[in-house]
């Protein structure tokens, strides 16, 4: 049983309709996976976007934003997941969504902040010179210009979250990570390989869709053929 044809088993697994159907099938798990990731990103964006835009507009927060982002890199996702799952939130999908939202927030926050900060000073002054209020300048001038970089932050966060949802299986949650942990537990390494490929594909797909969306959001004159600069 040790060195079976893992690749063959993976292909057989993917070819089995029973694997795809039903409440615990690949299709249902994929929907669950994307649903959890979507919820985490929305939750993070709901907090981080307004905060980042406001701080950037005010020109404040630079001192602690970068350390915060770096700390979030150093904090293991698994650790936060286990802390939340052991703190009365219950096990399963809920602590996972909250933990992943915490990890999605820093890139969204930092990019939104940078995006608004980096709107050309002269543009901002021109808007004020035309008699726009501060809020109106933010809404009509700064935000549209900041949009591409804001989208880059969302994209970074989303791809990271889609990959990390796999860890939910450690705390009794669902998503495609279930196939990894269960496959490992039952020594179905074909299933592990196939599920890993599925998750990687899902990440690449999400990345591609978001890259397209980001491009559509970018005003035509600003398109350079390359994505905006995300973190690092």
């Amino acid at each position: 049983m040790r060195d079976d044809d893992v690749l063959g088993a993976a292909i057989r697994w993917l070819n089995d309709p029973l694997v795809w159907q039903g409440p615990g099938g690949v299709l249902a798990r994929t929907v669950e996976h994307l649903g959890m990731a979507g919820a985490a990103v929305l939750l993070a964006a709901a907090v981080a976007l307004p905060l980042g835009v406001w701080l950037g507009h005010q020109g404040r927060g630079g001192a602690w934003l970068i350390p915060l982002t770096n700390t979030s890199l150093a904090l293991p996702t698994l650790a936060l997941l286990m802390i939340f799952a052991s703190s009365g939130l219950g096990f399963g999908n809920r602590p996972t969504i909250i933990a992943l939202a915490v990890f999605a927030a820093p890139p969204i926050l930092a990019n939104a902040w940078t995006a608004v900060r980096e709107v050309d000073r002269s543009v901002r002054e021109a808007a004020r010179g035309m008699g726009m209020s501060s809020a109106r300048s933010l809404a009509r001038v700064e935000l549209p210009l900041a949009l591409p970089l804001v989208a880059a932050g969302l994209r970074t966060a989303a791809v990271q979250v889609v990959a990390s949802v796999s860890l939910a299986a450690f705390v009794g949650g669902g998503g495609l990570g279930r196939f990894l942990v269960d496959g490992f537990g039952t020594r179905r390494y074909g299933q592990v390989l196939a599920a890993a490929v599925l998750i990687a594909l899902l990440c690449v797909l999400v990345e591609a869709v978001l890259a397209l969306g980001q491009r559509l959001l970018t005003p035509v004159p600003l398109r350079t053929g390359r994505g905006a600069v995300a973190r690092s």
Partner: peptide, 16 residues
């Protein structure tokens, strides 16, 4: 592309 493979999956694939 390699980077998009979750670490969990990568470890689980190398181990066997």
């Amino acid at each position: 592309v390699l980077y998009t493979v979750p670490a969990l999956a990568l470890f689980a694939m190398i181990y066997p």
